[in-house]
Structure formats: structure tokens, C-alpha cells
């Protein structure tokens, strides 16, 4: 049992892998190891005693009780373990499995940290694997789309700049029917509370903004929302391993605040 027995077709992974050779993979793995991987990865990979206690902390492992290849330690062994052991020289087919596992069988929740006596951070290790995947252009199609949206619009749902303000004003309008004095203050300097949302709210669940405004209104607090890009507090680039874009998003969001 292992990741190679449960491969699924994903356009993004498939296209990414089709452009790879073992040499390319090795070059990127080596460069990430030399530049970004540090003491944490080294200590984790060296001191894991393979006690298996983490198995009880992982929902992927718990939901596959008969398949030990889903435990956190086993997932590390099948991804970072392989890359460290081979120095990154793996064939693209193997790398497809590594990417699929890192993106779809660990959601970086770090729950296993509560189960590991020496505090090995599987989520961190998986982020490093994803980082390598991103640098090799091997990312699942859907999450990469949201990451592209981040790079273009600074939000993950391709919400355009004017659509965002329109949406806020629309919700303010609607809410004023119910609460006549209600306002959604935009870019108010010195407000006590800066309220930001994730892009699926304006895109699909607009009433959530209405409801938040109703609560702020009832509470009578001094609050504001940003009108400029940077209003989305989500960060899919962090999850794809695009740390450059992650940095830009974070900066934009904090500057907006």
C-alpha cells in the first residue's frame, strides 16, 4: 500500500510532471535543500524514532484504519523521505505521487504535533515538499487557479476591484432596509476594528458580509473594511508553496490594515 496505488488524474499535476526529467527534479530538490531547508527539517528527519504515535492524530490515517501508508510518519517517508534518500533524483512518475500526497493527503493542520513526543512538525515538512512541487510547476489545477487569482487580483476568487466595492455597497443597501442607520465604513482611518474576509464571501456568500455588518451595528463598535486590493485575508499561495507570492499577499494585507 502506498501513494502509487491510489493515483488520481489531475490536469495540473499531469501537465507539470510531463515537463519533468529526473535531472530537473534533482536540481530543484538540491537547490531548495541548499537554500531554504534548515535545521528544523534536518532535526525532524533525523530524530523521528518511527514510534507511530502520530497515527492516532491524523484524520487521514484515522479514516483509513487498514492502510498504514496514511500515517503522518509514513507520508513523510513517502515524500520528503524519498527526496532526501535519493538526493532528489526520482523519476517524474514517482514525483506525481509525491505531489499528490503532499497536496491532497495532508492539509497541514499540525494536529500530529499533539501526538509526537518530540514535536516533529509534519505540516512543516509537507510545506517543504509543496515548495519543491511549486518550484517544479507541479501543483493541482484547482488550487493553482486560486493562486493565480491571488497573483493577479490579490484575492483568490478573481473578484475585480470595482466588484468588491459594489458588493459592499450592495450589502450595505440591503442591510439598511432592516437596520436603517447601518453603515459599512470603508478605509476609515483610526477605526478600532479592521474587518477583512476571504474572497468566497463576496463571490458566493455575500450575506455573510451583511450579517457581520448587522453584528457590528448592533454592537455599536468603531469598525471599517478595506476598499483596495489586499482585502482578502486568505492565502492559497502559502498552500501551493509559492512563498514569493505569499510574501506579497501578506505585505499587501498588512499594509491595507
Amino acid at each position: 500500500m502506498g501513494i502509487q496505488d491510489r493515483l488520481i488524474e489531475d490536469v495540473g499535476l499531469r501537465r507539470g510532471v510531463s515537463r519533468l526529467t529526473p535531472e530537473k527534479i534533482e536540481t530543484v530538490v538540491r537547490s531548495v535543500m541548499a537554500s531554504e531547508a534548515g535545521a528544523r527539517l534536518k532535526a525532524y528527519s533525523e530524530t523521528c524514532m518511527r514510534c507511530g504515535m502520530c497515527a492516532k492524530g491524523c484524520h487521514f490515517a484515522l479514516s483509513h484504519p487498514d492502510d498504514p501508508s496514511y500515517t503522518p510518519a509514513a507520508k513523510v517517508a513517502q515524500t520528503m523521505g524519498v527526496l532526501l534518500k535519493t538526493g532528489g533524483r526520482v523519476d517524474p512518475g514517482t514525483f506525481y505521487g509525491i505531489a499528490q500526497l503532499a497536496y491532497t493527503e495532508c492539509n497541514l493542520c499540525k494536529r500530529c504535533v499533539h501526538y509526537c513526543p518530540i514535536g516533529i512538525d509534519t505540516g512543516f515538512i509537507m510545506s517543504m515538499v509543496r515548495r519543491i512541487c511549486h518550484k517544479l510547476g507541479v501543483t493541482p489545477q484547482y488550487i493553482q487557479d486560486t493562486a493565480h487569482s491571488h497573483s493577479t487580483t490579490f484575492n483568490q476568487m478573481w473578484v475585480k476591484d470595482d466588484e468588491w466595492i459594489d458588493t459592499l455597497q450592495w450589502q450595505e443597501d440591503e442591510a439598511r432596509d432592516e437596520f436603517p442607520g447601518l453603515r459599512i465604513p470603508l478605509d476609515k482611518e483610526g477605526a478600532e476594528i479592521y474587518y477583512s474576509v476571504i474572497a468566497p464571501e463576496p463571490k458566493f456568500r455575500t450575506q455573510l458580509i451583511y450579517q457581520a455588518a448587522a453584528i457590528f451595528n448592533a454592537a455599536g463598535v468603531d469598525w471599517t473594511m478595506p476598499s483596495q486590493p489586499g482585502w482578502d485575508n486568505s492565502d492559497m499561495c502559502m498552500f501551493t508553496g509559492d512563498f514569493e507570492m505569499m510574501g506579497r499577499l501578506k505585505r499587501r494585507h498588512f499594509e491595507s490594515a
Binding site: 528544523r40 532535526a43 525532524y44 533525523e46 530524530t47 523521528c48 524514532m49 504535533v113 513526543p117 518530540i118 514535536g119 516533529i120 512538525d121
Partner: peptide
């Protein structure tokens, strides 16, 4: 060897404690 967890475990745990 793997026994190096005697040397490092206290630091890996300390880091996780600090992060959490």
C-alpha cells in the same frame, strides 16, 4: 544516529511549544 533525539528532542519540542 536516531539516538540523537537525546540531544535534539528538547529543542524540537521547545520550538513547537513556542510556535503553538
Amino acid at each position: 544516529t536516531r539516538l540523537s533525539h537525546m540531544v535534539f528532542a528538547v529543542f524540537t519540542r521547545a520550538y513547537m511549544g513556542s510556535e503553538f
